[in-house]
Design a protein around this nucleic acid. Structure first.
Lengths: 158, 158
DNA sequence: TGGAGATACATGCAAACGCATATATCTCGG
DNA sequence: CCGAGATATATGCGTTTGCATGTATCTCCA
């Protein structure tokens, strides 16, 4: 048994707990207007990643199945918040971009949400802890992507 | 503007990113058998909190609306995984407990999942980082609960 | 003590989701 | 250059979710 097993599980449970607590806290706030938190997540990801963004790329950041994301984007497009264009370089692909209205909406909600986030996280943590949290979480967010090890697990030998 | 505003938002974004990445990674594993991750979350919370547990208490840990959780528990009860008893001390309340089958299922899936968690988190983090992550996340998980500040925001003066 | 408001959970219903699968396009070895 | 398999997205369909609201019970104070 690896040494850090309990350490890892305790850390994961704490992360889940923090996530649930904060998500609920943010969801309960009266700042979302005409969009849901999930929709905001999409708008934010679009605004952050240099648009246009592929559906599949978006799907790497948003915790939704591919069909669910496809239809969520549908609804946003019908509401004039995002625009779907076909990708000239790849006939299968879709290029997504915020419309002017979508960008405005993202900024408006984003400002308010950023304030909430700052309030919630600076309330309990020091700047050093915030930096540590970011550093550690960024390490976790990188996909392990060690195909050699996966091959080993399957008994594949070079 | 508070000093740690960007720090806080960067940390939150990293936490969300780590959460999404790891959840997807765990969901993709072939260890869940007859239950979903959400259902496992309920089983785990029941097994951890000294049973019996109230629905409302459970709802504080699980990221689901109260009606959705109520029905999820319904389904688990129909499948013989949890048991709902009425609370003798509070006629409105419900006391939830794992059945023997439910406890067995939780342990079986829990063992496998714990292994995955350990693999995923120890791969990228040192023991010290795991400890730091837990400590920081536990601070975040505590509900702020500063009603005085909320009153102040609404312009209420003592 | 009784009744107004709070709390705990359940239910009706429309919207959203995930799984399986279909469709269209791309990539490559032969 | 062609066809097999891979990749990107869409669609059918049954299940699950959230919102609004209903019902039962509890609390507390006038």
């Amino acid at each position: 048994m690896p040494a850090g097993r309990h350490l890892a599980n305790n850390a994961w449970e704490a992360l889940l707990s923090a996530h649930a607590t904060l998500i609920k806290e943010f969801a309960a706030e009266d700042i979302w207007g005409e969009i849901s938190m999930r929709e905001y997540d999409v708008l934010y990801t679009l605004s952050k990643g240099g648009e246009p963004v592929r559906l599949s790329e978006l799907n790497r950041h948003v915790l939704l199945s591919q069909p669910a994301l496809s239809r969520l984007v549908d609804r946003l497009a019908e509401r004039g918040i995002v625009e779907r264009r076909s990708d000239p370089a790849d006939g299968r692909g879709v290029r997504l971009a915020l419309t002017a209205a979508g960008r405005g909406l993202q900024r408006q909600v984003g400002r308010r949400h950023a304030r909430s986030v700052a309030r919630a996280l600076t309330a309990g943590l020091t700047p050093g802890e915030l930096r540590d949290l970011e550093t550690i979480c960024l390490k976790l967010a990188r996909p392990p992507a060690v195909p050699a090890a996966a091959d080993q697990e399957r008994g594949i030998r070079p």
